Computed example of a mutant assay.
Amino acid sequence: MMAIVAAVLFGFALIFQLADFSLDIITASVLTTAGLLFVALHLAGVPKAGWRGRGSWRRRR
């Protein structure tokens, strides 16, 4: 999920840079930095932290 968010942010950054468009705070460099943050979180395994899978609460016999 984090990788998809990063890809969308990189896409918006590319469009902003190609169109030479920027808002007051949101620029292509800000979107690129946010995309790199989400890639780093994805590679670190943040969405998977605490997720043990289906049925892990049951005891194995």
Score class of each variant (00 low, 15 high):
residue 25 I to E: 08
residue 47 P to T: 07
residue 25 I to W: 11
residue 36 L to P: 00
residue 11 G to T: 02
residue 7 A to S: 14
residue 27 T to L: 04
residue 23 L to S: 06
residue 12 F to Y: 13
residue 4 I to S: 11
residue 8 V to K: 13
residue 13 A to Y: 02
residue 43 L to V: 07
residue 30 V to Y: 03
residue 2 M to L: 14
residue 5 V to H: 12
residue 38 F to S: 03
residue 18 L to V: 14
residue 14 L to P: 00
residue 44 A to R: 11
residue 5 V to K: 14
residue 2 M to D: 13
residue 43 L to Y: 05
residue 40 A to S: 11
residue 3 A to R: 15
residue 27 T to W: 01
residue 1 M to E: 12
residue 41 L to Q: 06
residue 30 V to R: 15
residue 1 M to H: 08
residue 45 G to Q: 06
residue 3 A to T: 11
residue 31 L to I: 03
residue 21 F to I: 13
residue 33 T to A: 15
residue 7 A to D: 15
residue 32 T to K: 14
residue 17 Q to V: 01
residue 8 V to D: 04
residue 24 D to L: 14
residue 8 V to I: 15
residue 31 L to H: 05
residue 23 L to I: 06
residue 38 F to G: 01
residue 42 H to N: 15
residue 46 V to N: 00
residue 7 A to E: 15
residue 48 K to T: 07
residue 34 A to P: 00
residue 15 I to Q: 07
residue 25 I to L: 13
residue 42 H to F: 10
residue 18 L to G: 05
residue 2 M to C: 10
residue 9 L to S: 04
residue 3 A to G: 07
residue 27 T to F: 02
residue 7 A to C: 05
residue 30 V to S: 06
residue 26 I to V: 14
residue 40 A to V: 09
residue 18 L to D: 03
residue 25 I to R: 14
residue 10 F to E: 13
residue 17 Q to M: 08
residue 24 D to C: 08
residue 6 A to Y: 00
residue 28 A to E: 10
residue 3 A to S: 10
residue 38 F to T: 04
residue 32 T to A: 06
residue 38 F to P: 01
residue 39 V to K: 03
residue 13 A to L: 00
residue 42 H to C: 13
residue 1 M to K: 12
residue 28 A to R: 12
residue 27 T to C: 02
residue 13 A to R: 09
residue 1 M to R: 12
residue 6 A to W: 01
residue 29 S to K: 11
residue 49 A to T: 12
residue 2 M to H: 15
residue 32 T to M: 09
residue 41 L to H: 01
residue 2 M to T: 08
residue 9 L to A: 05
residue 3 A to P: 00
residue 30 V to K: 13
residue 17 Q to D: 11
residue 41 L to Y: 02
residue 1 M to Y: 10
residue 13 A to F: 00
residue 21 F to K: 14
residue 13 A to N: 05
residue 14 L to D: 05
residue 29 S to D: 10
residue 50 G to F: 01
residue 50 G to K: 11
residue 35 G to R: 02
residue 14 L to W: 03
residue 17 Q to G: 01
residue 49 A to K: 15
residue 31 L to A: 03
residue 3 A to D: 04
residue 20 D to K: 13
residue 8 V to F: 09
residue 45 G to K: 09
residue 33 T to M: 13
residue 36 L to A: 07
residue 31 L to D: 00
residue 12 F to Q: 13
residue 34 A to N: 06
residue 10 F to L: 06
residue 44 A to V: 08
residue 13 A to E: 03
residue 37 L to A: 12
residue 5 V to W: 12
residue 30 V to N: 07
residue 40 A to M: 08
residue 17 Q to T: 07
residue 14 L to E: 06
residue 9 L to Y: 09
residue 37 L to W: 03
residue 33 T to K: 13
residue 30 V to F: 08
residue 45 G to L: 04
residue 25 I to Q: 08
residue 15 I to P: 00
residue 16 F to Q: 11
residue 17 Q to R: 15
residue 12 F to N: 11
residue 42 H to A: 15
residue 20 D to H: 09
residue 45 G to S: 05
residue 38 F to H: 04
residue 13 A to Q: 02
residue 4 I to D: 09
residue 19 A to M: 11
